[in-house]
Design a protein around this nucleic acid. Structure first.
Length: 290
DNA sequence: AGGCAGGTGGCCA
DNA sequence: TGGCCACCTGCC
């Protein structure tokens, strides 16, 4: 494959190798992989395929396949949210009165959220139920390879659209390693196809209403809905409660015995309108500190 | 070899 | 609401 020359992306607060890895491959997105020999990250979203690397000055550099000239710098900046003032958002988090949150932020000061396509985010997190990140990535890769559109003649495909999934069968989805998730993913695909543009509608709704619509899909509960809204619709008040966050809240915040809905409410009240961003720091710190 | 993993939905009280 | 359990599959 022919790539463009490397181009520097100007960023206010540059990534470190560590925070870049945690941002791309820490569980927000399942379509990034490190080409270890060259220390290059390669990933896709929608019809886009890019590679990222940090140069010797720690500047972030990007390149794309030569033929994909629709992958503009602006499209890349929008996906990586390079023009969001994250430090201003961090400043609004209650780290001054919350030493554990402060420690989590200090561990990954450049950790960022991505702005992923809504439909793909829903699919990825529907695959995530009781799976670890490497397994989820395999499921997504299988879905893309078997059902998704080509991005370049040789290279990873795009994730399939919900229409492409609806045209498949539960049995075939199971053959891709989706397990018991296959049934719900197929049924959700059928529902989405029945109501064209419903995902666009849901994405545009306020958080509470959007979540209500998402959890109506089979296989989508509170956690998957919150992940979809946080990572795929920039609803930063969403506070996904997963096993890691449950552990953090119980052990670090003394909330032993609280139910999941109670923990969710605690998170959103304590952490505020950017609770989801705070969650990402707590999650990353907990997951990497053992 | 059995238990568990970035959950959900079904049942029961 | 709260508790318990099945559900695919791969990995330790």
């Amino acid at each position: 494959m022919k790539w463009t020359d490397w181009q520097i992306l100007s960023i206010e607060n540059p990534f470190t190798a560590n925070s870049l890895r945690e941002t791309l491959d820490g569980g927000q997105a399942f379509r990034w992989s490190l080409i270890e020999a060259e220390n290059i990250w390669q990933g896709t979203w929608g019809p886009h395929l890019i590679q990222l690397q940090l140069d010797s000055n720690q500047s972030l550099q990007v390149r794309r396949p030569i033929e994909n000239n629709f992958t503009t710098e602006q499209a890349i900046r929008d996906y990586l949210l390079l023009d969001t003032d994250w430090n201003a958002i961090i400043d609004q988090l209650p780290w001054r009165s919350d030493s554990h949150l402060q420690a989590s932020i200090r561990a990954f000061p450049e950790l960022r959220l991505l702005n992923q396509p809504f439909n793909e985010t829903l699919l990825g997190f529907m695959c995530s139920a009781t799976k670890q990140i490497p397994q989820i990535k395999i499921m997504c890769a299988n879905l893309a390879n078997e059902l998704g559109d080509k991005i370049v003649p040789s290279g990873p495909n795009a994730l399939p659209t919900w229409k492409q999934i609806a045209q498949s069968s539960e049995e075939f989805l199971r053959s891709l390693g989706l397990g018991f998730r296959a049934k719900n993913i197929k049924r959700t695909a059928d529902l989405i196809v029945q109501e064209p543009n419903c995902l666009e509608t849901i994405e545009s709704l306020p958080y509470e209403e959007a979540k209500e619509r998402l959890v109506a899909f089979p296989g989508v509960g509170s956690k998957i809905a919150d992940c979809t809204l946080l990572f795929g619709a920039r609803k930063y008040e969403a506070f996904p409660v997963d096993t890691w966050i449950i552990k953090v809240l119980k052990t670090r915040y003394g909330l032993e015995g609280w139910s999941n809905p109670q923990l969710e409410r605690f998170g959103r009240i304590h952490l505020g309108s950017y609770a989801g961003y705070a969650q990402q720091f707590l999650f990353a710190y907990e997951r990497t500190s053992r």
